[in-house]
Design a protein around this nucleic acid. Structure first.
Lengths: 124, 124
DNA sequence: CGGGATCCAGACGGATACTG
DNA sequence: CAGTATCCGTCTGGATCCCG
């Protein structure tokens, strides 16, 4: 745990807009996975999800805090340090996320193929 | 299988807008469950989801057909009869839906309580 | 019966710039 | 560092009416 988060943790080219399973908001599932191995700072999370603007990241984190999925801790230091950490409730979603990933590994390509073929038939 | 679908199959008062797991579009998961035990007609599905307008239902079904989750069969009769039936791919999502329901049974009240308490603290 | 056509509103996500 | 402020385009979902 506590290894740095890679900017390539999530592939921006992955056709996840077609992905049929979503946990919370658009980024909630990925954030839960980012926090799986311990608390992270705002900038660490930004680094792992370069496509997400600070505003959206902040909004997502606040809504997750509201739902009791994570805690936000401000350390009174200079420079300021804020850490986000999963609660038990947030952690309870990890199994479901893993199940979604397993479904994707087995079936996602079938869905994408069906979509491609359907699109070819209707607009040649 | 083939029992009629009840209009109370899904509780319109259920705070599902707070539900953090979603399969496909807003109604996809519920439709998959409606089709679990065999093919259904458009009007049967309408009956099970009274809150969904025909337009939205039709759109959802077409997008599910596009993704290979179900098939749409037009029977050449009078009056016309159209049946929707899950494919293997659509059926493969049933496990995930069941896992989501299990998560909800165990944890959803915790999320709602956390949300309530948070909202009370911030706006008394 | 099983939709399509049209129009519309609000929510969501994003770009850009700025701050304690 | 860790956000907030402002503005804006898009897109989903819905209301209503109509049709083969």
């Amino acid at each position: 745990m506590r290894e740095p988060l890679s900017p390539e943790m999530f592939d921006p080219m992955c056709p996840s807009s077609a992905f049929p399973i979503q946990i919370g908001g658009k980024w909630t599932g990925m954030l839960i996975r980012c926090l799986e191995h311990g608390p992270r700072r705002f900038t660490e999370l930004r680094n792992a999800l370069p496509a997400v603007t600070p505003k959206v990241l902040s909004e997502t984190l606040r809504s997750m805090e509201r739902d009791g999925l994570l805690t936000r801790t401000v350390h009174d230091e200079n420079p300021p340090r804020v850490e986000y950490e999963l609660t038990g409730l947030g952690r309870s979603l990890l199994d479901l996320i893993e199940a979604s990933r397993a479904w994707a590994a087995e079936h996602f390509h079938t869905l994408l193929k069906a979509r491609d073929e359907h699109d070819l038939e209707s607009s040649p």
